[in-house]
């Protein structure tokens, strides 16, 4: 799988949120998009996932524009989980995960052994076997998020796009999600592009961090190269100190804002 963004621009209505972004995503890597609120992370992710049409430029999957690939066909290779609006449909965990088979299924009535196998595998990977008959609305936040991820896994994608998968979760659940992403990547070779807000969480699991600001990519590279006080000051307007874990992962201690008081967010 090869994913390239070529001078991609796009936004909503008259407003341009992403302007001329070019990027190549390495196969089987975990890439995290970082940046202050409103920098266009989610917009970029939506354009990669073909649910927002770019104004100009292209997203090429193996050399073919994602907007020109048949959308159902694309859904068998690329799965995406938008930012959650806390919705919990009136379905059980298993029923919801089975909906992830939609792009593979012929008719709505008969689930093939292949479909059931994929659902079982997704439930195993997300450790939800014990909850498969529970209604989604009775789950905790972390379990619910794992259910949604299981649904995207039932699609059996090569490329997984996650928009803020850890937001609103407690710290343990955040780690669970990140470890899940890591194991999906290591065991099954799924390429993951996600948006995170927590710098340290991102640094601990990503092969590459993409720092966005003002509609464009400012810095891109492995965590140890781009998690520096200078770059964080420029992108996030924070004063910070970086320490290193024994495994060589940078850890950022934020000390304060460098933004002038009148131009707050």
């Amino acid at each position: 799988m090869k994913l390239e963004l070529c001078t991609l621009s796009g936004g909503y209505g008259a407003k341009l949120v992403i302007d001329g972004v070019s990027l190549t995503i390495r196969d089987r890597s975990i890439v995290t998009l970082l940046g202050p609120n409103g920098c266009g992370k989610s917009t970029l992710l939506k354009m990669i996932g073909r649910i927002l049409k770019p104004r100009s430029g292209e997203v090429l999957l193996d050399g073919k524009s994602v907007n020109r690939i048949d959308t159902a066909q694309l859904a068998r290779r690329l799965a995406l989980l938008p930012q959650q609006q806390h919705s919990s449909p009136d379905l059980t965990v298993e029923e919801l995960v089975m909906l992830g088979r939609f792009p593979h299924r012929r008719g709505p009535w008969t689930a093939s052994p292949r479909d059931r196998e994929a659902v079982d595998k997704a439930l195993n990977m997300t450790r939800l076997q014990g909850l498969r008959h529970r209604l989604t609305r009775t789950l905790s936040g972390g379990e619910r998020q794992r259910t949604w991820i299981a649904m995207t896994l039932a699609q059996e994608p090569e490329l997984l796009l996650l928009d803020e998968p850890t937001t609103f979760l407690d710290i343990c659940c955040q780690f669970e999600i990140v470890e899940l992403v890591r194991s999906l990547n290591r065991q099954f070779g799924i390429t993951v592009i996600m948006v995170l807000h927590d710098l340290n969480l991102a640094a601990s699991c990503s092969d590459e961090l993409i720092m966005l600001k003002d509609r464009a990519i400012r810095y891109a590279g492995p965590p140890r190269e781009v998690m520096t006080p200078e770059i964080l000051r420029e992108v996030f307007s924070i004063e910070s100190r970086i320490t290193w874990s024994p495994e060589g992962v940078p850890y950022c201690m934020a000390l304060g804002s460098t933004r002038p008081a009148e131009s707050s967010c």
Partner: peptide, 11 residues
């Protein structure tokens, strides 16, 4: 499930 999730599933 929502417009974006539905679109992501190829609908």
């Amino acid at each position: 499930l929502g417009d974006e999730i539905a679109a992501g599933l190829g609908l």
